[in-house]
Structures are given as structure tokens and as C-alpha cells.
């Protein structure tokens, strides 16, 4: 218990550090004193303080939002499927959200952010149900690989449809470019602020449901004996994963591997206790996305690379190394 609390506090410290980095580092380096002043004694005349308030804050907020949502979604998905490779990006859930938004844009259904988010939710939900139905049944030998492959196939299918729509419709392509980059820029901060309550409520609900999900992870018979309603809890978890993944995609575009790597590292730190896993994954996910974003800002001057590219590189390596540690029996 105490060790877990220490880990959680350390993650919080890491997140605060990442926020400071994200506010300070960029095309223009800004010292911590100015950042502090921009919060405590805001002076609109100071150009540096204005950079912090007007551009870096919203970017940082989006990073925290997307990172914590993806971290928690990954932790829930991995527990639900009892599968270490479950990740909303890898399983095609983010791709489903993107396709729904593209279809919305091209049919004129999605005119603003307020209509895009529900569409992203519908697309993510359909993809989640599909990939779960195809690849996640049974815990028999081979299940992890099947789920990963089902995700890859579903992503390929969805992307080819998305691509086909974009080829035909230039106007949609123009708007969609902002989504696919997997970038923390290009969103209005008011739009993103509207997503904050959604993500906070979903994470809180995940904390409440995590005890019951833990019981399901013990096996269906044990869970029934403990009085858990298995069908209901599974539905709730899928809805929460969908909400979180869709919110993250709406805020930052499709980002892969954060939902895979963060819960995995968190499990190494706090063990299998799901409530702690949710807390640490939320903090760690936010910190990871911010750090990856900062790396993307400085690695390719004078330009930047999107956070999705950095996370794919780092996460892909972690994924490949994870497969090495898997026991043959699990495969």
C-alpha cells in the first residue's frame, strides 16, 4: 500500500515536471520564473507570458487529457481482455473514431467540434465491439496474437476506407489533415476544455468499476461467486474504453501505443491492483505524451514532428521487446 502510494506520488511529480518542460521548451525557450508569473501575475503586455498563456497551455492541457485517457483506456482494455497487447490504437479503435469523423465531414454531418466528438464516439464504439467480438474470445492459447492481428487487420480495413473517402473529397482531406497528424496543436482550446469533464468522469467511473473488473479477471466463476454481474461490468468497461479513446482521438488525433506501454510499465511498478493501475496509468500516460511532444518539438528544428510519430517509434520498440519476454505457453 505504502509503496504504491509512493509510486503514485512519484508519477505526479513526474507529471508536474513534464508540464513544466512542456510550458518551457519550444521554438522560444521560456524560463520558469516567467511561466510562474504568467499564472500568478499575468501581464498581457509581456510577449513571453502571452506565448505561455495562449499557445503552450492549451497544448499542454491536450497532452494531459489525451495521455491520461489513453493510459486508463489501455489499462481497462488489458484487464478486460486479459491480454497484454490490448491498446486502443493498436486495436483499431482510434482508427474507427477517425473514420466516423471523416464520414461526418464528407456528408456534412460534422460541422464543428461539438458534432465531431459524438461521431468519434460512435466510430470508436463500433470498432471496439467488432475487434472484441473477433479477436478477444476465450483465453485459450494464441489469444494475445489473435487480438493484435485482428486489430492490425481492422485498422488496415478502416484506413483503406478512410483513405478512399479522402481521395474523393479534397475539402474533407484538408480538415482531416489536422486529425491524422497525431498532434497536440491545431485544436481550439475552448473545444478541448469541453472534453475535460468527460474524461474526468470516465476516469472516476473507471476507478469505481475497477474493483468489480478485478473480480472478473479472477475468472467468471469466481466473479459470479463474489456477486459481480459479469455482463454488465463488461459493457460498462467497453463503454468507458470507447469514451476515453474517442475523447483522446478527438483531442489529439490517433495516437498508438500510449495505452499499451503505460499500463504495462505501471503494472511493473504497482502490481496487478487495478485501482492503483488506473491512477498510475492516468498520471504516467499524461507525462509520457507530454515528454514525447517535447521531444517532437526539439528533434527536428526548425519544424516539429507530431506526438503520434514519437509515440509510435518508442511504443513500437517497447512492443517488440515485450513480445520477446512472452513465454511460449502464452502464445
Amino acid at each position: 500500500m505504502r509503496k504504491r502510494a509512493v509510486v503514485a506520488v512519484l508519477c505526479l511529480v513526474a507529471l508536474v515536471g513534464a508540464v513544466a518542460l512542456s510550458l518551457a521548451v519550444g521554438a522560444k525557450q521560456i524560463d520558469l520564473g516567467t511561466i510562474w508569473n504568467s499564472l500568478a501575475a499575468y501581464d498581457p503586455e509581456d510577449p513571453l507570458q502571452r506565448i505561455v498563456r495562449e499557445s503552450r497551455w492549451s497544448r499542454t492541457l491536450i497532452g494531459i487529457l489525451a495521455g491520461s485517457a489513453l493510459g486508463v483506456a489501455g489499462a481497462l482494455m488489458q484487464s478486460l481482455t486479459r491480454n497484454p497487447f490490448a491498446d486502443p490504437g493498436l486495436l483499431g479503435i482510434n482508427a474507427g473514431a477517425s473514420l466516423a469523423v471523416v464520414l461526418g465531414l464528407t456528408t456534412g454531418l460534422a460541422t464543428g467540434f461539438a458534432t465531431q466528438v459524438p461521431l468519434a464516439f460512435v466510430g470508436a464504439g463500433l470498432a471496439a465491439v467488432l475487434v472484441y467480438a473477433i479477436g478477444a474470445r476465450g483465453a485459450a492459447a494464441g489469444a494475445p496474437v489473435r487480438l493484435a492481428l485482428a486489430g492490425v487487420a481492422l485498422t488496415a480495413l478502416i484506413s483503406s476506407v478512410t483513405y478512399a473517402v479522402l481521395m474523393v473529397d479534397d475539402a474533407t482531406l484538408d480538415q482531416y489533415r489536422l486529425w491524422v497528424a497525431g498532434s497536440l496543436t491545431g485544436r481550439q482550446s475552448e473545444d478541448v476544455t469541453a472534453l475535460v469533464p468527460l474524461v474526468v468522469i470516465a476516469i472516476a467511473a473507471a476507478l469505481v468499476a475497477s474493483r468489480q473488473l478485478e473480480a472478473v479477471a479472477l475468472g467468471e466463476d469466481a466473479a459470479r461467486a463474489l456477486g459481480v454481474r459479469i455482463g454488465a461490468i463488461r459493457t460498462v468497461i467497453i463503454v468507458l474504453v470507447t469514451l476515453l479513446a474517442a475523447a483522446a482521438t478527438a483531442a489529439a488525433g490517433p495516437i498508438v501505443f500510449v495505452g499499451l506501454a503505460v499500463p504495462h510499465l505501471a503494472r511493473a511498478l504497482v502490481g496487478a491492483s487495478l485501482p492503483w493501475l488506473v491512477v498510475v496509468s492516468a498520471l504516467g500516460g499524461a507525462a509520457l505524451v507530454l515528454v514525447c511532444d517535447v521531444i517532437g518539438r526539439v528533434i527536428a528544428p526548425p519544424g516539429e514532428i507530431g506526438v503520434g510519430i514519437t509515440t509510435a517509434f518508442i511504443g513500437g520498440l517497447i512492443f517488440a521487446l515485450m513480445s520477446r519476454r512472452m513465454k511460449v505457453v502464452e502464445l
Binding site: F85, G142, P144, V145, A148, L149, V152, V256, F257, A300, I305, G306, I309, T310, A312, F313, G315, G316, L317, I318, F319, A320, L321, M322, S323, R324, M326, V328, L331
Partner: peptide, 30 residues
């Protein structure tokens, strides 16, 4: 090299390959 561990297990090879696929695609994007 990543999936070699006292021999090759095909499924481990496939998983390592999926991971490497993301890594090299990130390099392409960069």
C-alpha cells in the same frame, strides 16, 4: 534479433514484426 530467444517461435516473430512495423513507419513519417 528482437524475437530470437533460444530459437525462433513464429508467433513471437509476428509480434516483434508488428512492433517493428510501427517503428519503421515512424521513421518514414519523420
Amino acid at each position: 534479433a528482437l524475437s530470437w530467444r533460444r530459437g525462433i517461435v513464429p508467433l513471437r516473430l509476428i509480434l516483434a514484426g508488428i512492433g517493428m512495423g510501427f517503428v519503421v513507419q515512424a521513421i518514414t513519417q519523420y
